[in-house]
């Protein structure tokens, strides 16, 4: 009995001592669509992201209206016609790092990681997986990845008139500098 109490105590202590969360509110997501007709690029530099080293949880929250385009009209169409930001203001990703045990916070340098989880965009949730790199630094982790999103999978309809202007597969580049949460 005493033994178990001790384990319990250690576990509780352990979670509080080693709870290592990393957070940013200024992550960068860039997406890119290229067709012979038009190249469309947008940047969002206010991406929320957090990583919990204890259990490998890795999440993103992205305000869709924060994507900035080269042309104001593209931005208006993106929000009004495609992702419908009034109805679906945020996109979410909730996932886990599969090889979380490979990440040693005391060992500086790059670690290849695999992430699986659910991406919610335009009100639709899909399972996604991605390969990325986590660069472990002093009190900080730089994480980067690239994923491909197909608008039609998320029920984003592209009308015939502009179907040649928007790529079927959109490249999404993710770059977040997560800072250690001090408590």
């Amino acid at each position: 009995m005493k033994k178990y109490s001790l384990i319990l105590l250690v576990l509780i202590m352990g979670t509080s001592v080693f709870a290592q969360k990393f957070v940013t509110k200024s992550g960068h997501i860039r997406f890119y669509s290229e067709t012979p007709m038009e190249t469309i690029e947008a940047n969002n530099k206010q991406v929320n992201s957090a990583y919990d080293h204890e259990n490998g949880a890795f999440v993103f929250k992205v305000l869709m209206k924060s994507f900035e385009f080269e042309k104001a009209l593209m931005q208006e169409h993106f929000n009004e016609n495609y992702v419908e930001s009034d109805d679906f203001p945020n996109s979410f990703f909730k996932g886990k790092i599969v090889n979380n045990e490979d990440i040693d916070l005391n060992k500086m340098g790059e670690v290849p990681v695999k992430v699986i989880g659910q991406l919610t965009l335009h009100g639709m949730t899909m399972d996604v997986e991605a390969d990325g790199i986590m660069d472990i630094q002093e009190n900080m982790i730089s994480a980067s990845s690239k994923i491909i999103i197909e608008p039609k999978e998320y029920d984003i309809k592209i009308p015939g008139a502009v179907v040649k202007n928007i790529a079927e597969e959109i490249e999404v580049f993710i770059n977040v500098d997560l800072k250690k949460l001090s408590k």
Binding site: M1, Y4, S5, I7, L8, L11, T15, K21, V23, K25, N48, A50, Y51, D52, N55, A57, F58, V59, K61, F92, K94, G95, K96, G117, L181
Partner: peptide, 25 residues
């Protein structure tokens, strides 16, 4: 009882870990 408690704590923390993390924002 202790084992059950431990198991409960563990499963709860795994299930809600990602949602909890989302609350940070």
């Amino acid at each position: 009882l202790v084992l059950l408690f431990l198991g409960l704590v563990f499963s709860v923390s795994i299930t809600f870990a990602q949602d909890d993390l989302m609350d940070i924002f």
